[in-house]
Computed example of a mutant assay.
Amino acid sequence: MFKGLGQLGDMAKMMQQAKEMQGRVVQLQEELKTIVVTGESGAGLVKATATAKGELTGIDIDPSIFVPSEKEVAEDLILAAIKDAQAKASQRAETEMKKLSEELGLPTDMKLPF
Rank of each mutant, 00 (worst) to 15 (best):
M1E: 12
L5T: 00
L5P: 02
L5F: 00
Q7L: 08
G9Y: 00
D10S: 01
D10Y: 00
A12N: 06
A12K: 13
K13W: 01
K13Y: 00
Q17L: 04
Q17H: 02
E20M: 03
E20N: 09
Q22W: 03
R24D: 14
R24P: 07
V25Q: 06
Q29S: 08
L32D: 01
K33L: 07
K33C: 03
K33P: 00
T34P: 10
T34S: 15
T34K: 13
I35Y: 04
V36G: 00
T38H: 05
G39Q: 07
G39H: 02
E40Q: 12
E40V: 01
E40S: 06
S41C: 09
S41D: 12
G42L: 10
G42I: 08
G42M: 11
A43Q: 11
G44Q: 10
G44K: 09
G44M: 07
L45S: 04
V46T: 02
K47Y: 04
K47V: 06
K47W: 02
A48R: 04
A48Y: 01
A48N: 07
T49H: 03
T49S: 10
T51V: 08
A52Y: 04
K53H: 08
G54S: 12
L56C: 07
T57G: 05
G58Q: 12
G58K: 08
I59K: 10
I59R: 10
D62R: 11
P63Y: 02
P63W: 04
P63M: 06
S64T: 15
S64Y: 05
S64M: 13
S64P: 13
F66M: 15
V67N: 15
V67F: 06
V67E: 15
P68S: 15
S69L: 14
S69R: 15
S69E: 15
S69N: 15
K71Y: 02
V73Y: 07
V73M: 15
E75H: 04
E75D: 09
D76V: 01
L77Y: 03
L77G: 05
I78E: 13
L79R: 12
A80W: 03
I82R: 14
I82G: 11
I82N: 11
D84Y: 01
Q86L: 13
Q86V: 12
Q86W: 05
A87K: 15
A87L: 14
K88Q: 14
K88P: 07
K88L: 13
Q91S: 14
Q91T: 12
Q91R: 09
E94R: 11
E94T: 09
T95A: 15
E96L: 05
E96R: 08
E96Y: 01
M97Q: 14
K98Y: 09
L100W: 03
S101Y: 00
S101G: 08
S101E: 12
S101H: 01
E102R: 03
E103R: 01
L104N: 09
L106I: 13
L106T: 09
P107G: 06
D109C: 02
M110E: 08
K111Y: 01
L112A: 10
P113I: 03
P113E: 14
P113S: 07
F114V: 10
